[in-house]
Design a protein around this nucleic acid. Sequence first.
RNA 1: GCCCCUGUAGCUCAGUGGAUAGAGCACUGGCCUCCGGAGCCAGUGGCAAGGGUUCGAGUCCCUUCAGGGGUACCA
Length: 566
Amino acid sequence: MFDIKNIVAESLVGHIGDLNKQQIYEMLECPPNYEMGDVALPCFKLSKVMRQSPDNIAKNLAEKLPAITSVDKIEAVSGYLNFFLNKKEFTEKLLNTVLRGGEKFGSANIGNGKSIVIDFSAPNIAKPFHIGHLRSTVIGNSLYKIHRFMGYECIGVNHLGDWGTQFGKLIVAYKKWGDKSKIEKGQIKELMDLYVKFHEEAEKDSELDEEARNWFTRMENGDEEALSLWKWFKEISLNEFQKVYDLLEVTFDSYAGESFYNNMMKATVEELEEKGLLIESENAQIVDLEEYGYPPCIILKKDGSSLYATRDLTAAIYRKKKYNFEKCIYVTGAAQTLHFNQWFKVIELMGYKWSKDLIHVPFGLVSIQGEKLSTRKGKVILLEDILSEAIKKTTEIIEAKNPDLADKEEVARQIGVGAVVFGDLSNNRIKDISFSWEELLNFDGETGPYVQYSHARTCSLLSKANREVDLDFRCELVNSKEEYKLVKTIYDFPGKIADAMNELEPSVITRYLVDLAQDFNRFYHEHSILVDDNELKNARLAIVKATGIVLSNGLSLLGIHAPERV
RNA sequence: GCCCCUGUAGCUCAGUGGAUAGAGCACUGGCCUCCGGAGCCAGUGGCAAGGGUUCGAGUCCCUUCAGGGGUACCA
C-alpha cells in the first residue's frame, strides 16, 4: 500500500532544519476534514527551534517548497502546512490497489509467520454459555483473524474451565439432589439448576463447601467415581458449546483446557520450589508478591490441591515450549486483571524472559438493568436465546421486504448472528455493556445489518450493471465531494487494521466499517451509478466494487459474513 | 482501608496533545415517475467538578465527587 505521508515526508527533507525523513514523517498528521488537505504539517513544535511563529514557518515553507510530484497544492493555514494530493492520481492508484488486491486487500506480512497464541472463549464446563462468555469469544476470534491477516501464525486455544472446585460442588449437588435421567433429558440446564441449588444450600450449610472441596481433591487424586462423573458433565457441556460455536462459526486449534495440565502441575510446583519462590503461609503454598504491591499468588491450597494460577502458570510454560509464541494473548474479563498481573509476575520471577510476551486483554462486564449476571444465582441470559431472537427478527424483516430471497435461512442466520457480534464489538472492549433487547434487535443505524446491507447494495449494483469492472477507468470523472471522501476512507483501511492489531481492539474496525458504509450511502444517494455514460458508469462502479471489497474484508476480520443478497 | 477501570448530547458511544468535539438511538420535519427505505437530508442537544503542565488539554499530572470491579485457598 502506498503511503501518502511518506510522499510528503520525503519531499520535506532538507527544508526543515536537519530533520530526517523519519522525524518529519512522525510530525505529519491527517487533517480532521479532507477539504483542509490530505496531509498536514503542524508547525507549532518547529516554532521554538526555528525562532519563528508557526504561521510564518508554514507560510515560508509554502512559498519556498519546490513542486512535489502527486501534490497539487500546498497551503499555509493558521500554523499548519496543508498538502493537497492530485486527486486523479490518488484515486487511480488506490482503486487499482484495492481491485487487484481483492480479498487480500489490507493484509500485510508484519507477522512474517511468527506464532501467536490467543487464549479465548474458555467457558466453564457445567455452566451454560451466556451473554458474558460471548465477549471473550468474539473479541478473541476477531483478534485471531486480524493477526492472521497481518501474517501471523495463530493458535486459538479454548482453555476450557474443565477442572476445579466447581466440579466438587456439582458432584455434591448431583449426589444429593440429582437425577440421572433428568440430566440426560435436560442437559446443561439441569446441571445449571444443580449448581444454583448448591449455592443456595451452601449459604445455609457451610459443610457443603467442605464436601465439595473433598470431592475435588478426590478428582485430583484420580478417584474413579469422581472422574467418571466429571467426564460425563464435560461431555454434556461440550455438546452444548459446540452448538454455539457452530452458529458463530468460531473454531479453535486446541481445546486443551485446565484438566489437560493435571499431570504437569507437579513439575511447576517443584520448579517454583527449586527456584526458592514457594513459601508456606497459613498452611498454603504461595509465592509472596508483597514487594510488587500484589497479594500473594496461591499455588497450592492447604489441602494440597491446585488453583487457577497453578494451572495458568503450567499452561503458559507448556505453550511456550510447544508453540514458541512471540506473544500469548489472554482474552478475559477485566475482573481478572489482578490474577494475571500476579502470575505474570511469578513467571518473571521464575526467570523467564518471555514473561513480557504474556498479554492480558481485558474487557468490561455485561450487566442487565444494572445488575451483574451471575450463574450462581441463576441470573443469566443464554447466548443461544439471544442468537435465535436475532435470527428470528431478521427472518421477519426478510419476509416483509425480500420474500423471494434465495437461501433465506442461511442469510437470516448470517445477519442475525452478525448483528449480535457486531454489537458486541462496537465499543471499546474495556467499557461495560448494559444488555438491552431493544438495542440488540434494532437494526437501524450503526449496526451489523446496516453494514451488511450496504455491502449487499454494492453487490446488487455490480450485478445490475452486468459487467466486470474495467480496470482501465477514468478517475478524473469521479472527483465529487462524496466520491473523494469515500475514496479517502477506503484508503484508511490498512491503517485501521494495524491500529486494531496494535491496540488489540476490534472495535477500531467495527467503527471504521460504519464510517465507510455511511460514506458509501451518501455517495449512493447523491450520484447515479448506473448511468448511460459508459465511462462515468465504469469509474463509479470501480468505487462501488472497491467499497464492497473493503466492507467484506472488514466484516470477515470481525468474524461476520457479508452476504451478497439480503 | 488499599489497588484497578470508567465518567463526553435524554440514551448508547467515537474522538493518535493540535484546526469548528463527531456518530447512532430516541424525538421533530423533509426525501420514493430514482440503481434495494435495514437508506438519505435537516433540526434539537454535550467534555462530572476544581487545580496544574503546555504555544495548545476531552486527551497528560494532582485533588475531589460518582459508578463499577478486585483485594489468600472460586474461575
